[in-house]
């Protein structure tokens, strides 16, 4: 219950570990502050509870020398905050900005209440005759960077893979890019994470991460 990090689902993407380490970093820094502040409050409440014959001190905390007791911890908060951002920026860039060259492009279109997954087929081009659509099934090979083209037919949806640590809202009228590289074969859920109507609860697909040969066999079956 208290060690929050144990609650994260298993990570199966190349960048998920970086996101987890940022969460862990914040968890440890905030845990220290939690202990310090709660400890101080508890101590003060016990030490300075009302007792006969002991009046409160007339301290206003206005002079700089007094205010430093509070300002120094505030500066420490600032330093830790900036450090967390400093550590976080490269992770954000890795997930959202620096997309490696993709081995495979797949278009995922959200609509009330399904994911329509379209593969460009052998010619690697969307909008041609060999495109193939699968509802709520996303098949990818393990260890290959995959590029997603996210679109919506109606309202805003959010493409979420808890195990990949990937979440991206999908806005109608835009084509939004995302990428991932799965590290472990398996079958993982793909829920929609943005309220999209009465069928939002239960709107989900499955991500199938195949070992390379299995993936090639699957491709052959579909496009033969």
């Amino acid at each position: 219950m208290l060690n929050w990090l144990r609650w994260l689902p298993e990570n199966v993407s190349t960048y998920g570990g970086d996101i987890d380490s940022i969460i862990a970093l914040i968890w440890y820094s905030t845990a220290v502050w939690f202990v310090l502040t709660f400890g101080t409050i508890g101590l003060f409440l016990i030490l300075y509870r009302r007792r006969a014959g002991r009046p409160a001190a007339y301290v206003k905390g206005e002079r700089l020398a007094e205010a430093l007791w509070v300002l120094v911890p505030v500066v420490m908060v600032l330093a830790i905050d900036l450090w967390l951002d400093f550590r976080g920026a490269p992770v954000w860039a890795k997930v959202m900005l620096e997309r490696p060259p993709a081995a495979l492009s797949i278009q995922v279109t959200g609509k009330q209440f399904n994911w329509e997954v379209v593969y460009p087929g052998p010619d690697s081009k969307f909008g041609t005759a060999d495109d193939r659509q699968f509802d709520n099934e996303l098949h990818v090979p393990v260890g290959k960077p995959v590029r997603l083209l996210l679109k919506s037919k109606d309202v805003i949806h959010s493409f979420f893979s808890p195990h990949l640590r990937l979440k991206q809202d999908i806005v109608p009228g835009r084509a939004i890019e995302a990428w991932f590289e799965a590290t472990k074969p398996g079958k993982y859920e793909l829920p929609c994470a943005e309220l999209c109507g009465f069928g939002h609860s239960g709107m989900k697909g499955w991500l199938y991460v195949h070992p390379e040969e299995d993936y090639n066999r699957w491709v052959k079956e579909q496009w033969s």
Partner: peptide, 11 residues
């Protein structure tokens, strides 16, 4: 602070 961190917020 978790929510305010953009990379943590992805998850």
């Amino acid at each position: 602070i978790f929510n305010g961190s953009a990379p943590a917020d992805i998850y």
